[in-house]
């Protein structure tokens, strides 16, 4: 369990340092300086970011060594480390993986929701989006899902109508409105 979290920590630090390098060597020259903007402030921030990431890396490595040293000394004196079963979350599968998949599905649903709003309009898109996300969140009662997914976007539509604000109509909804007119 400890090793897993330490490795994850190490991966985070490597990602941070990789970002600092990419920002310094590619993003700032390409998307800040090349646009004619002064790069001083972004460069200063990137240096602070890189220094903090390096400090974090050094601290992490030193602490890891200290922990290892402590354990081996204790083991030298005859201490036997008990086998502690790792909780389900730390096994990398099960809850954590499921959580990751659910989050990815929700994010994907959000992007599809945006695309659908521009094609079939807010009401139908939100109906589909709510059906999908309520399922991801664990609701299995179809009657509840359908009623909720129909009523909630209707309420939002009404509020926006009252506030005299517009919601995305999309090509399909636009065509339907023209047909009704």
């Amino acid at each position: 369990m400890l090793k897993n979290s330490e490795n994850r920590e190490f991966l985070v630090i490597v990602t941070l340092l990789a970002f600092a390098s990419a920002n310094g060597f590619w993003l700032i020259p390409e998307f800040v300086v090349a646009e004619g903007t002064s790069g001083h402030y972004p460069i200063l921030l990137n240096w602070i970011f890189a220094l903090l990431s390096t400090g974090y890396l050094i601290d992490h490595v030193v602490t890891r060594k200290q922990k290892k040293g402590k354990v081996s000394r204790a083991e030298d004196q005859g201490y036997v480390r008990p086998e502690v079963p790792a909780p389900l979350e730390s096994k990398g599968v099960g809850i954590s993986l499921l959580h990751g998949i659910k989050v990815a599905l929700i994010l994907l649903s959000v992007f599809i929701w945006v695309f659908l709003q521009e094609t079939i309009g807010f009401f139908f898109a939100t109906f589909c989006f709510l059906c999908a996300t309520t399922l991801i969140y664990g609701e299995r009662n179809w009657k509840k899902i359908i009623i909720f997914s129909l009523v909630f976007p209707l309420v939002v539509l009404l509020v926006f109508l009252l506030l005299n604000a517009t919601l995305p109509t999309g090509i399909v909804e636009e065509t339907l409105r023209n047909l009704v007119k």
Binding site: I106, V110, F129, L130, T133, E139, K144, F152
Partner: peptide, 8 residues
Amino acid sequence: LLFPAVIV
């Protein structure tokens, strides 16, 4: 039902 509504 609450959390999907919050996302909307």
